[in-house]
Write a protein that binds this DNA or RNA. Sequence first.
DNA 1: TCTCCCAGTGATATACTGTATCGTCTAGCT
DNA 2: AGCTAGACGATACAGTATATCACTGGGAGA
Lengths: 143, 143
Amino acid sequence: MSWSEQVLTELSAEGHRLTGPRRQILEYILRYTAPFTAEELLADLHQTEVQVGRATVYRTLELLQQHEWLRLVHRPEGEHGYVVGEPGHQHHLVCRACGKVTMFEGCELETLLGGLAERLHFRIESHWLEALGVCRSCQVAGS
Amino acid sequence: MSWSEQVLTELSAEGHRLTGPRRQILEYILRYTAPFTAEELLADLHQTEVQVGRATVYRTLELLQQHEWLRLVHRPEGEHGYVVGEPGHQHHLVCRACGKVTMFEGCELETLLGGLAERLHFRIESHWLEALGVCRSCQVAGS
DNA sequence: TCTCCCAGTGATATACTGTATCGTCTAGCT
DNA sequence: AGCTAGACGATACAGTATATCACTGGGAGA
Ligand SMILES: [Zn+2]
Ligand SMILES: [Zn+2]
Ligand SMILES: [Zn+2]
Ligand SMILES: [Zn+2]
């Protein structure tokens, strides 16, 4: 079952409608290999025969992010971009050369943050971890 | 030597001018206990007798951030805010109740990320770590 | 202390980004 | 097929950030 099929299934199960624009956006998103913004997606869609309204793009991306099918990461330039994700706890490695994102799960931060929280009397509820560097293919290309 | 004096010294050493607006902004920044945005600082300054131009506020904050005298953190609402910082490696705990930020240094992420980088053949150059939760005083107040 | 030069300022205009509104349409159910 | 609430999208609007450019004043050197 592909990513877009999974998303459509879950959305439908929650009572959301599977409209044409949503299907088209879902399909188009998969073309991206690097984080993208709502404006970029909108502009790219307008280059094609697909004509989707600005509001719909923003609404759809936010809906997907709330369901964790999309995630926010910091792009090397500084702003936030969306990347395709899976529900559950996960973090990202962002390549500053090509922008590609590598996911990894199972971070062992809980113990580290647990000790810290106890020491500072701070109740930690969630954390944001992200690494910036150079991916394998860009290392090869650069050397 | 206070934070603003340190900043002024470094800026001067690099050939930047110590202008009136810069001094006033530096002084005002220290009033904040929670992350602030450029627009908020601008509005707050306009409430006082200090009249600084919009462009100057944006330029000054960016200048300070480049020198790591200011840092960006995620505010509970989602956007980025500035907090006073020191140059060097450091991370933040952000309270979702009062917004206050607690810094901590010396994270032991290097080993964790080191193993990961080797496994994924990803050269990690920097990382972003931030925790969201409830600070001590807000825990007391809430219970 | 005085002069001069240019980094810095700030008013204005403009571009960019995101949201509110609201009439229309259609997906999905009966 | 018909109904209806959810979704769409054109438009207007609000908020955020940057470009421009004439002017100012910080500070180095005379
Ligand atoms: Zn790469
Ligand atoms: Zn961010
Ligand atoms: Zn608090
Ligand atoms: Zn660290």
